[in-house]
Simulated assay, not measured.
Amino acid sequence: MSLNRYRLKHLVKKKHRGAKKASKLLERPDRLIGVILIGNNFVNILASAIATVIAVRLWGDAGIAIATAALTVVILIFAEVSPKTMAALHPEKIAFPASYLLSPLLKLIYPLVWIINGITNTFLKLFGINVTGDNNHHLSTEELRTLVHEAGALLPQNNQNMLLGVLELSEVTVNDIMIPRNEVIGIDLDDDIDTIISQLSRTEHTRLPVYQGELNKVVGLLHMRNLAQVFHEGQVSKAAILQVIREPYFIPESTPLQTQLLHFQSHNRRIGLVVDEYGDIQGIVTLEDILEEIVGELSSNNKEEDQEIFLQEDGSYFVDGSAYIRDVNKSLEWDLPTDGPKTMNGLITETLESIPDANVCLQLENYRIETLQISDNVIKTARIIALPKTEADD
């Protein structure tokens, strides 16, 4: 009963004979317990009867008390506590050899086991307990996450992080990781061709949205590889760009990352435009963004330029207002609320229920937040310090 069920299944798949027999016995734990306890109680009662007879012959009526006390100590030490403690600590060493004895013993006394189990199972049904129900052990997402955390040295830290990233995909939506609309870089067909050519020659991205005047009027997605031939022929024009673009791919903002990863795969896409319930474009998300949720940052280029969190000498942090709360929590192992706004700017303004005219200080749970820079109705920078739990409670 102390066997690790998942290791047992693994050993069964490897054709381990003892594991196969133990697994077969555990399919009906009521029968396994029945055959063990029949033998256990039979031996204990028989030993008690024999010890009482011997003690009475040696010491008379006082022998009953002597036999009871002596046999209790002997059974507790040698038949209960010691063997069961050893079996609990090393279940495989005990269970696998024992299964070779218990399996034939169960067949031998099966009629007796069947009668006793029939009576006990009927009694248990009075309390709504179904002993023949599904005995499979299934783990929830939270239990799997705990299992990964407790793997310790058995799993390298990088592997643990990747497994945890996979488990979180169904809990995170595309609007949690998307590049927000105000940071989207694209080609505006209303610009003159020289401006467009200059932008294309300097861009670091391989895929760009192409739009007419504003992002909501997107006409397609441009892959720089498709434009290489146009550049080679020296015939770059707006018409040539329109010929090599691909139709836009739209993604509802509430789509879980796990679902979107499958959609990217089935539609042979690597980038999509995130839209809200009204069809307005909120940002873009790429296949790389989703993979980074699993494996971490794929590229260290421009890491210093993209840094949004800066440690200060007093233990506080300067955090960019556009930083995603999930990224801050991951980097600093904090638990800022993520069920509302996605960015620090949104979290602060929602807590204040207004956009502050000047710098303010507030406390959110056990985090003290001070705005440092506000411009264009946006909080650009904030100082955040995590308070000890007791101080936060006070």
Rank of each mutant, 00 (worst) to 15 (best):
R5L: 07
K13D: 12
R17L: 14
G18R: 01
K20G: 01
K21G: 00
R28V: 12
P29Q: 06
G34Q: 03
N44I: 14
I45N: 03
I50A: 06
I50V: 11
R57E: 06
W59S: 15
D61I: 13
D61T: 11
D61Q: 08
V73D: 05
F78C: 08
L89S: 11
L89Y: 06
K93Q: 09
I94S: 01
A95Q: 00
L101I: 12
L102P: 00
S103R: 14
V113C: 13
I115R: 07
I116W: 07
T122P: 00
F123V: 14
N130C: 03
V131M: 05
V131G: 00
D134Q: 01
N136L: 07
H137C: 12
L139S: 08
E142K: 11
L154R: 08
V166N: 01
L167E: 05
T173F: 09
N175S: 13
G186F: 03
D191R: 13
D191F: 10
D192M: 15
I193P: 00
I197N: 09
L200K: 09
L200I: 13
S201G: 09
T206W: 12
R207A: 00
P209L: 12
Q212L: 11
G213Y: 12
G220C: 10
L222E: 14
L227S: 06
L227K: 09
V230T: 10
V230L: 06
H232S: 03
Q235S: 06
K238D: 01
A240P: 04
A240V: 08
Q243R: 11
I245F: 06
R246T: 03
S254Y: 07
S254D: 12
T255R: 03
Q258P: 01
H263P: 01
Q265T: 04
I271M: 13
E277G: 07
E277H: 15
I294P: 06
I294V: 14
V295I: 14
N301R: 06
K303V: 11
E308Q: 12
D314W: 00
Y317E: 04
D320C: 05
S322E: 14
A323Y: 09
Y324M: 06
D327E: 11
L332Q: 04
W334Y: 10
L336H: 08
T338I: 15
D339R: 11
K342M: 01
K342R: 04
E350S: 15
E353W: 04
E353V: 01
L362F: 13
N366A: 13
Y367L: 02
Y367W: 08
I369K: 14
E370I: 13
V378S: 10
A382M: 04
I384P: 00
D394K: 14
